[in-house]
């Protein structure tokens, strides 16, 4: 039942001489939504970069579905179903929405499957259907975030890594996007690792959470524990 999907043990990552991760341990079970919280510079994004191989870790182990993936190439991880939505959206501004989505299915070859996925996406975010021939750069911030998430879904992820999906968005749009993230999780059983600044919202969504401070996991527990914990509330949730 609770199969471990992704596990990090003692992961250390450095940018030159600056060690950003000082031995991170965390595990994510299949079908879970995990929130990774922490202040700026705590190492949240670096953790994601280490997982996806964008910044190879110095030491430690990373296993995805029982397979060692430390130092694996990003593109091979995408093929395995470990897909990241990068921070700041990173959509392709010069390509149309449709082309953006098709690019998400780059590693897949099943054309009819891609068509079905497109249909699914346009049901999930109808606004993307109406914007499908607009170039990605002309979308609003919220729409771009929707596009970024949709694009990663086109690659049929087993596990999705979301880096700050709420960045720079209006509260009402954030709620929409978070609702969709939950929907993706419940409908497809996609495991989700969510990196967020907006701790309150992330905890409402997540099953469990980890809190990072200066390159280490300092706290872990279920989301409800965190929400009810007086100390955590004071330190991370603003009272």
């Amino acid at each position: 039942m609770t199969k471990t999907m992704l596990e990090l043990k003692g992961v250390r990552t450095a940018y030159g001489n600056i060690e950003a991760l000082k031995g991170v341990d965390l595990h994510i079970n299949e079908g879970e939504i995990i929130a990774l919280l922490g202040a700026n510079g705590a190492g949240k994004t670096t953790t994601l970069a280490s997982i996806t191989g964008l910044v190879p870790p110095k030491s430690g182990t990373i296993t995805f579905e029982g397979e060692d993936i430390r130092g694996a190439r990003t593109e091979n991880l995408v093929k395995k179903g470990l897909i990241m939505v990068p921070e700041g959206r990173h959509i392709f501004p010069g390509l149309t929405v449709l082309e953006n989505l098709k690019m998400g299915a780059y590693v897949l070859k099943d054309q009819s499957g891609i068509k079905k996925d497109l249909e699914y996406i346009f049901n999930l975010f109808p606004i993307l259907a109406t914007r499908s021939k607009q170039s990605g750069g002309t979308l609003s911030g919220g729409e771009q975030q929707m596009l970024a998430i949709s694009r990663s879904l086109m690659g049929k992820p087993r596990m999705l890594l979301l880096d700050e999906p709420s960045l720079g968005l209006a509260p009402i749009v954030i709620r929409d996007i978070f609702d969709t993230i939950r929907k993706i999780n419940t409908e497809n059983g996609t495991t989700i690792l969510l990196v967020e600044q907006n701790a309150n919202l992330a905890l409402m969504l997540a099953h469990r959470a980890y809190i990072m401070t200066t390159g280490l996991i300092t706290l872990s527990g279920t989301a409800s524990e965190f929400l009810n914990d007086e100390n955590v509330r004071k330190a991370y949730l603003g009272g």
Binding site: L54, T74, V78, M84, P86, H90, F92, K102, M103, G155
Partner: peptide, 22 residues
């Protein structure tokens, strides 16, 4: 496919990698 990989690379290198493009 290769052409699309090139387009993706031109548009955004980070996203290009996130799409599984070598």
């Amino acid at each position: 496919r290769l052409g699309r990989a090139w387009l993706a690379m031109r548009e955004d290198e980070v996203a290009c990698q996130a799409m599984g493009i070598n």
